[in-house]
Structures are given as C-alpha cells and as structure tokens.
C-alpha cells in the first residue's frame, strides 16, 4: 500500500471538510453524473479512506479520483474554504495506478514530446518568430496550438508581427501539464528551464493557460503572462467585430490564475460582448482539460454541450481564451479564440 505521503501532508485540510455537501451545488461532474463519487465531497471521503487505510487503491478509486477537471468551481461554494482541488490532486499523487487514457498521454509526451502521439515533423515549415538571442520575450506555444489548433499559434504570431513585437518561439517541448494534472511528476518543466537558461529570455507569453500554470514554479525567474494580459496593456484600436460574442472563462485562466479582466477588456475594444449566466469565479467548466476529456469523453462532452446551448440560446459566438476550451467546445458549436478576435480585428 502507498504511504499516502501527499495526503498526510494535508490531513488537516481533509478534516476541515464537514461533509456539508455544498460542493455539489454547482460541480459540473456531479451535475452530469449525480452520484456521491462524482462530487468533491465524495472524493474527499475517498481521501479519508485512503488515509485511514479503510480502502485500498483499485480501478474504481483511480477512476473516481481522476473524474474531476480540478476546475475549482466547488471551492466557490465551500463555506469551510476547503482546498478541494488540492486534496484531489494530492490523492492522485498517492495513487500507483493510471487510467489507460492517461498512460497513453504520458507515453506520448515521453516519446514524442506532445500528448497526442504526433511526430514533430508535422510542424515543419511553420512560422518561427525571431532568433532567441535577439529578444527578451518568448512566446510559448503549447501542444494544443502546435498540433491540434495551429490557427491559434498563427494568430498569436501574426498579432506579435503586426504589433512589431519580436518574440522567440518556444514550441519544441510539452509543458507537462497533463502529467502534473494526472498526479505524476512533471519532468518536462526542468527540461524547458534548462533550454531557457541558455537564452536571454525575461518574459514568457502564453496563449494556453494550462501551459502558463505549469510555468508558475518559474515565476521568480521569468515574468510569465497570458497573451490577453500582454495585449490588454496596449492601445490596440481594434475594429468592431460586428458579432455577438459571449466570453467563456477558462477555469485555469480564471479561478486558478485569477485572470478575468484582460480578455474582457480586449473584447470591449472589439465592440463588446455578453456574459454567461455564470461567469468569472462562478463560470462553468467546459470539460476541455486534456487529461479529463481523454479519460471521460462523454462527461466532458455533456459539460461542453451545456455551455454551447446557453450561447445558442443567446445567439452568440463563444469566445475562449484557452486552446483547450477552444478545441473542446468547437466540436459542439461556434467558437472563436481571443487571439483570433484580436488578430482578425487589429
């Protein structure tokens, strides 16, 4: 049996949960599944069981603890301020087993440097930015923009070019976020850090909030920022988009990184936007997290449909500020990312 070292470290946090059930109030996975195991409380209960040795790891324990996007929506309703995501994440770290979908992601990152199992050759002849020695600013393109949603990378680089900002493009390694989310050691970041150490980079700009989240441990060494933060500080003079836009807060960009205002400011510059019924801290997660949607595609799909449905009712096009949300939501409805909005109307 595992030593449960990560759970032991946060035992007091676990015991602070009174079991009141308020975490069920707006939890997206609970909304879709409806069982105790789907709720934040259910997962904390499992943490109790693992800690006390009353239960041992099996497939159902792994499945339950992984069936959460770590979106943190439940924490907005928890009156005991329990760090539910941290508990679930700690429990994941104490697990030995991995779901097959997650194993595939980890193997792909180890072998190909991306979670999709795609050869890096597929990115040949792409726009590359400037040579690293000539700039202090880097744009980190995540795997989603490099392999699945190349248009977002093109849009980001096009913006930099239009604005005359020289950026070095870092796009040859996965940031390791999916591995971290699954609860395994992220060895990717130290690899990237070594490369960055050889460069003159002082500021790193991300269009992917998950990549940015992975870089948080390096935030003393580098100034890290989301592309919306970088752009919102400039006088962009955007043209009116002429579209009814509705902004979807990414859980990572919003609740985890606290970035709410900047994408909104950019959309205001492009003629305005409307809000989802639940937005900012209370925004609903779309289920687009890579590890989650790979392991639980049906639940992730239902979560996305709910968001798309509200946008449809309001006759609006969804604007994301995360390639993961973009990639996931576009399977179900009309979506445009903030980098595309800025690039198109700059």
């Amino acid at each position: 049996m595992s030593e449960m070292n990560h759970l032991k470290k946060i035992q007091h946090e676990i015991m602070c949960c009174t079991g009141c059930g308020y975490c069920k109030k707006a939890c997206p996975t609970f909304d879709m599944g409806g069982t105790e195991a789907d709720s934040g409380r259910g997962k904390i209960f499992l943490a109790y069981g693992l800690l006390s040795g009353e239960i041992e790891e099996d497939t159902s324990v792994i499945q339950t603890l992984q069936k959460c996007t770590l979106c943190g929506r439940c924490e907005q309703d928890c009156p005991s301020l329990v760090k539910i995501s941290d508990i679930i994440h700690a429990a994941r770290k104490d697990l030995h087993g991995v779901l097959p979908a997650h194993q595939k992601i980890m193997d792909s990152i180890a072998k190909y440097g991306n979670p999709f199992g795609m050869e890096s050759e597929s990115r040949k002849n792409e726009q590359r930015g400037v040579e690293a020695e000539n700039t202090e600013i880097a744009y980190f393109a995540g795997c989603m923009e490099n392999y699945m949603e190349k248009g977002l990378k093109r849009a980001a680089l096009s913006i930099f070019e239009k604005l005359g900002v020289d950026v070095a493009v870092i796009d040859n390694e996965c940031c390791g976020n999916p591995v971290e989310i699954i609860g395994r050691e992220n060895k990717q970041l130290s690899k990237i850090e070594k490369k960055l150490d050889d460069m003159a980079i002082k500021k790193i700009i991300f269009s992917c909030p998950s990549c940015m989240q992975s870089f948080l441990p390096l935030n003393k060494k580098f100034e890290i920022m989301h592309i919306s933060q970088f752009l919102a500080g400039m006088d962009l003079n955007l043209k009116d988009a002429g579209m009814k836009l509705i902004y979807h807060d990414s859980s990572v960009l919003g609740r985890k990184l606290g970035i709410y205002e900047e994408p909104r400011k950019l959309l205001e510059m492009a003629g305005g936007f409307i809000e989802f019924k639940q937005h900012e801290e209370l925004a609903q997660c779309c289920g687009g997290d890579l590890a989650f949607s790979a392991a639980f595609p049906d639940t992730a799909g239902k979560m996305a449909e709910r968001i798309v449905e509200e946008a449809r009712e309001k006759n609006a096009t969804i604007v994301t500020a995360s390639p993961h949300c973009y990639h996931h939501l576009k399977k179900y409805g009309d979506v445009i990312d903030i980098v595309e909005v800025v690039d198109r109307f700059l």
Partner: peptide, 15 residues
C-alpha cells in the same frame, strides 16, 4: 453502484 470507491462514498453523510 457496486464498485469499491462508489460504495465507500455512499457510506457517509454530514455526520
């Protein structure tokens, strides 16, 4: 619900 984890979570309430 008959899985190990599922049954365990149904063993609780707020007491």
């Amino acid at each position: 619900i008959s899985s190990h984890a599922g049954l365990y979570t149904y063993g609780f309430d707020a007491s």
